[in-house]
């Protein structure tokens, strides 16, 4: 059985799937790739194809209309993969919880390996959390075996 630890030893390539965020999480994520945070120096990259990705970074409360697109993107990434729930909406649905068109976050569709709380989480917090995930990956600790 493949293990997620092998995925993310020295680099982490992620594909973003926006499932109904207010765009503040996207805005903060984009700041990671500016000169103030420069996440690329740690091997973190947002990739333009799911085929190039080690996993998904998901924002928003999980709108019904994005359910299928999220599942198909996850499938295109393949297994093993990591799933990062970015922001309070992705973790719990936050203020949009239990509406007719949004659910209670990513958890309804995918099991998250990493939750980054905040509304929105600041770029430094996102970077710190992703780097902790990478350290866990390097040592193989705390990551579930893949599905």
């Amino acid at each position: 059985m493949a293990h997620k630890a092998f995925l993310i030893g020295r680099s982490l390539a992620l594909r973003l799937v926006d499932c109904g965020s207010c765009n503040a999480c996207e805005s903060e994520l984009a700041m990671l790739f500016g000169p103030d945070f420069d996440a690329q120096r740690f091997g973190i990259e947002m990739v333009p194809s799911p085929r190039h990705a080690d996993g998904l970074i998901v924002t928003g409360p999980g709108t019904s209309q994005m359910t299928d697109a999220l599942a198909r993107t996850a499938e295109a990434v393949g297994a093993p993969r990591v799933v990062v729930a970015l922001g309070d909406c992705a973790i719990s649905g936050h203020v949009h919880r239990d509406g007719y068109a949004a659910k209670c976050g990513v958890a309804a569709s995918l099991e998250a390996d990493l939750q980054i709380p905040g509304c929105p989480p600041a770029p430094g917090e996102i970077l710190g959390a992703l780097r902790r995930l990478m350290r866990k990956g390097a040592t193989g600790q705390g990551l579930a075996a893949s599905d």
Partner: peptide, 11 residues
């Protein structure tokens, strides 16, 4: 568009 429709007005 409207993939991000969360139903805010009803909610």
């Amino acid at each position: 568009l409207f993939w991000k429709h969360r139903g805010v007005e009803a909610n």
